[in-house]
């Protein structure tokens, strides 16, 4: 075990990059998921089309291809992105497209009677969204969003392929230097596993918090 422990300091710098990518990517993905998910439900067709195009393109092409395209392709248009920003941008765009479908599904799954009650009570569309749809949609969106957050964490490993020194990148460097392949990979996988468990735990906490005092079953 001590053999494992002495490797940790060298990996810590990479861990920080991975955490930054996860948080930055999650923030961007969150914003894009709501824009995309609501956009796809918009009654105004240009908005709907842009949302659909965004969702289909970023779900339909591979995350790694997107990463390479932004990192190697964009400079040819004179746009140079630092690896970190390219990483956060691609993670956010990619995971956000999957998140948009979760948001759309979460809102769509709410019983039609809810919006009819809102009309009968003369709520504006914004009030209906803010006070009735959003709180109910959040509870449905959170569990699949938690799974998606773990997918995001796993996807961050790809940035090691555009020279960003995240956890995986540091691990590979360390392996080349020390040739302690087994230990390094074991440690690497364990750290990712631990991070994933931590994220899952946090999401479950928020979920319980949101649901305290009420649940959807049997009510309409």
């Amino acid at each position: 075990m001590s053999a494992l422990l002495d490797l940790i300091p060298s990996l810590l710098g990479g861990l920080w990059v991975t955490v930054q990518l996860t948080l930055g990517g999650a923030l961007l993905a969150c914003i894009l998921a709501w824009l995309g998910g609501l956009g796809k439900r918009s009654g105004f067709w240009p908005v709907r089309w842009v949302a659909i195009a965004y969702i289909e393109v970023f779900r339909g092409t591979s995350a790694l291809v997107q990463l390479f395209w932004f990192f190697y392709g964009l400079p040819l248009f004179g746009i140079h992105l630092a690896p970190m920003w390219a990483g956060i941008l691609v993670l956010g765009l990619n995971i956000g497209a999957y998140g948009a479908e979760i948001v759309r599904g979460g809102i769509q799954s709410i019983d039609k009677g809810q919006s009819e009650a809102c009309t009968a009570l003369n709520l504006t569309p914004f009030q209906q969204f803010r006070f009735v749809l959003l709180p109910q949609a959040l509870v449905r969106i959170l569990p699949p969003a938690g799974n998606l957050l773990i997918e995001l964490l796993k996807t961050t490993a790809l940035v090691s392929l555009i020279t960003l020194s995240d956890l995986t990148f540091k691990g590979m460097i360390l392996r080349a230097e020390t040739l302690r392949t087994a230990e390094i990979f074991a440690l690497l996988l364990l750290i990712y596993f631990g991070l994933a468990q931590l994220l899952a735990f946090l999401v479950r906490r928020i979920e319980l918090r949101l649901k305290r005092g009420w649940h959807m079953e049997g009510t309409s």
Binding site: K154, T156, L158, M172, T181, F185, L189
Partner: peptide
């Protein structure tokens, strides 16, 4: 659970180098 929550890229390296 472990396989599902660790990056596939690291798993690829693991098999290839281990």
């Amino acid at each position: 659970e472990f396989i599902r929550s660790t990056p596939i890229l690291v798993q690829i390296y693991f098999l290839f180098y281990m």
